[in-house]
Design a protein around this nucleic acid. Structure first.
Length: 296
DNA sequence: CTTTAGGAAGCTTGACCTCA
DNA sequence: TGAGGTCAAGCTTCCTAAAG
């Protein structure tokens, strides 16, 4: 893009960012939506305010060929937002962009596999972190943001703040996890964070990429060939609770899921006798043998 | 359908170790 | 002791999957 065109693009782009913020969109959404506008501008090498319907159809057509439908949907939604709120235009034809129907299911670790992963994790911080994610069914982002003040050891529960969609929830805290968190905290004694980063910035949390890489290494050491990421610990936890007889609604509340869609795979298990959620969680955590506990 | 979080890749940085 | 190598962590960006 030449300098004058770039200058012309900057104004609507900034307006777009402002509108997204004013609409209360989360940072991840603003990031994703702003990328789509930058991408279409880069593709046509100009400010996208005067593109024709044919131009945009051609753009989305090549995008379908080169990217996943998730990306295509994002760009479609972002362009719609951009045209509606920045350019004040409607693009009805965008409704013809519809992804094919598909439904995939995540890989699940067994309880012995989870124990193996935790025990093969050499660094204490990752070992305790994986235990924390699994034993309370947390998402990666929820785990790394945990603070000392979120732990309520009197009521044996943890306050999960600003989870997906900006929602809070409480989850039961297994005794074993509390012990592990206390043990690990003694090694760094950070005033607020349970899982601080290693860099010089005092309030930086543990890096997501580092956690992902650490888990990949451990899975390799354990010879586990399943497609597993930290988020699969969240799914594995849900599966194991249902296998223990906890009812589906309780598991969804625990994980911060409102819909039945993603957990529908587990519904066949709900005929099993109901079990107290707190007991089931402690049973799962107690089923893991942690190497550092054996050493200490 | 729309929105948000997670995963992955590529690059940089810094700690740690070895060796001349 | 300093140069060079190695590796993990951190950071940024882009892409994909999951959840609302």
């Amino acid at each position: 893009m030449n300098p004058s065109e770039q200058l012309r693009f900057n104004y609507p782009y900034q307006q777009h960012l402002t509108n997204l913020t004013l609409q209360g969109k989360r940072p991840a959404t603003i990031d994703a939506y702003s990328r789509a506008v930058r991408r279409v501008a880069a593709y046509f090498d100009c400010c996208p305010d005067n593109l024709t319907t044919q131009d945009l159809k051609a753009y989305l057509d090549q995008l379908i060929a080169s990217h996943s439908w998730s990306t295509v949907k994002l760009d479609r939604n972002d362009l719609q937002f951009f045209y509606r709120h920045v350019l004040n235009k409607e693009w009805q034809w965008l409704n013809i962009v519809k992804p094919p129907q598909s439904k995939t299911l995540p890989d699940i670790l067994t309880v012995p596999e989870v124990a193996s992963v935790i025990n093969h994790t050499r660094q204490l911080r990752y070992q305790v972190f994986f235990l924390t994610l699994y034993s309370m069914g947390l998402r990666l982002g929820e785990g790394i943001s945990l603070q000392v003040c979120d732990i309520d050891s009197a009521r044996m529960q943890v306050h999960i703040r600003n989870a997906k969609g900006g929602k809070d929830r409480f989850v039961p805290l297994p005794t074993r996890t509390l012990t592990a968190l206390r043990f690990y905290w003694q090694t760094h004694r950070h005033p607020t964070l349970l899982f601080p980063g290693k860099d010089a910035k005092p309030d930086s949390v543990m890096d997501k990429g580092g956690v992902q890489k650490a888990l990949k290494r451990v899975l390799c050491d354990c010879n586990i060939a399943k497609s597993i990421s930290p988020h699969n610990l969240h799914h594995s936890f849900a599966t194991h609770l249902l296998e223990q007889g906890v009812d589906l609604r309780s598991v969804q509340t625990l994980l911060g899921h409102n819909s039945l869609n993603t957990t529908a795979r587990y519904t066949r298990l709900t005929h099993i006798a109901r079990l107290n959620t707190h007991d089931a969680i402690n049973q799962l955590a107690n089923g893991l043998c942690l190497s550092w506990e054996c050493e200490s």
